[in-house]
Design a protein around this nucleic acid. Structure first.
Length: 374
RNA sequence: GGGGAGAUGCCGGAGUAGUCAAACGGACCAGACUGUAAAUCUGGCGGCUUUUAGCCUACGAAGGUGCGAAUCCUUCUCUCCCCA
């Protein structure tokens, strides 16, 4: 169990490695589809597997509220529950402190959540979250952290870092108490946009010796350039022999840049959420398939793509499905987007192994347009 | 043949004298989405322009009454319902 660095690109800081988990190996860099509610929305586990995804993500906070521990325990854990036998990373609920800010209150001991489902109150402590992730059978657990919004005053970040560090320490202790030693636990580096605070946080978190390290609190509304300034700076403060995970990022551009900055793992809702909203990703750029120009376009989303959607269906058909509000449309685009993301990152890994990642990235970015003409 | 109801923007449908280029839906057009409260949300939707404003054309047709009409009156055309 753990991370092994296999190769470093000679032209950039990009790395290729292998993360060994209780449910198999994950080659890095790696993109993990987000399955918050024990499902990569609109796709079956079989479809996700067929896309080439090696690692997926789920969310402890959401699954704690519903269906709850009893159901998951009775089901034999999260893997069996959702019929996914590969590795699963579980997020803690730290992001929900940000996204459901109106419904929670952070305290030193933990976070008081008012359920967005039924209004019931739940006090989540770092210990409870780790315990729950243990019950899920998570391969990679994330500790409870405070994901701050942007912008935040420096003094608030300093206060928040104390809490996140305290929670990290307690999470680590709680993880040691779990009977199963099959899970890894990553540490999360916060610090908002203040580089010196990022540095302090990185040192503190690394001092606790986690199985891997995550950069959190990015892509929460700050400009793109800031994401990369923080990522590059912080990634360099992390030990080379541990996996680096950039939480919640991102767009194809963002991921390739982050790989060049030395990041190994990504997760993002964009391919699935945007896919459900009709946006498809291709090597030439982004397409909004609901748009009128695709009405009679009988070419596939991406003619160089080998996914099920592109092998079988046209843009005109998918647009028709969206227009008629047929459920298959958003499934087909989700499927394609996940395939595209996974394939893009796999191609990045190959380029790293050939020491040509920088060239690969430049070439991709040159061709990729945010909204190409059709 | 007799009686009744009605004709509003692409469609459905409010509005019965001024605050109406006209509610609200739908369709259509576009935008947003980065550790998922999201198959969601936002904007546009008569035309033109110097577009946080102005002008023109508009509520079946024609004519009329009003300072002013989608709204009132007259005639016409068409649609639907009931009775024979």
């Amino acid at each position: 169990m753990g991370f092994k660095l296999r190769h470093k690109d000679t032209g950039s800081k990009a790395r290729a490695g292998v993360l060994t988990t209780a449910h198999g190996e994950v080659r890095t860099p790696c993109f993990m589809p987000v399955g918050t509610q024990a499902t990569i929305k609109a796709l079956s586990s079989e479809e996700v597997r067929a896309s080439g995804a090696e690692l997926i993500m789920a969310n402890a906070y959401h699954l704690y509220l519903r269906p709850g521990g009893d159901v998951l325990e009775k089901s034999g854990g999260l893997h069996k529950f959702m019929a996914w036998d590969g590795p699963i990373m579980t997020d803690s609920g730290g992001y929900q402190i940000f996204s459901l800010a109106a419904l929670n209150k952070v305290k030193k001991e933990g976070v008081e959540f008012k359920s967005h489902i039924d209004g019931s109150k739940h006090f989540m402590t770092p210990e409870k979250i780790i315990e729950f992730q243990g019950l899920l059978g998570s391969d990679i657990m994330m500790p409870l952290d405070e994901c701050l919004h942007y912008p935040v005053a420096r003094s608030n970040v300093e206060e928040s870092l104390k809490i996140t560090f305290n929670w990290a320490k307690r999470s680590k202790e709680a993880a040691l108490l779990l009977r199963s030693k099959r899970s890894m636990l990553f540490g999360i580096v916060q610090g908002s946009t203040y580089l010196d605070l990022r540095k302090r946080a990185a040192e503190e978190i690394v001092g606790l010796d986690f199985d891997g390290y995550a950069l959190g609190g990015v892509a929460v509304g700050e400009p793109r350039e800031l994401i990369h300034e923080i990522t590059e700076y912080t990634a360099n403060l992390l030990p080379e022999n541990k996996a680096r995970y950039l939480m919640g990022v991102g767009t194809p551009h963002d991921m390739l840049d982050a790989i060049a900055e030395g990041v190994d793992l990504f997760d993002c809702v964009v391919p699935t959420r945007n896919g459900r909203n009709g946006q498809a990703f291709t090597r030439d750029g982004e397409l909004q398939l609901r748009n009128a120009p695709f009405k009679e376009d009988i070419s596939p989303i991406d003619k160089s793509c080998d996914c099920y959607t592109c092998r079988n269906h046209t843009r005109a058909y998918i647009r028709h499905l969206f227009n008629t509000n047929e459920i298959l449309g958003l499934r087909l685009v989700s499927l394609h987007n996940i395939y595209f993301y996974v394939t893009l990152i796999a191609a990045s890994r190959e380029a790293i192994e050939k020491n040509s990642f920088d060239k690969f990235r430049k070439k991709f970015k040159e061709k990729y347009k945010r909204r190409p003409k059709c």
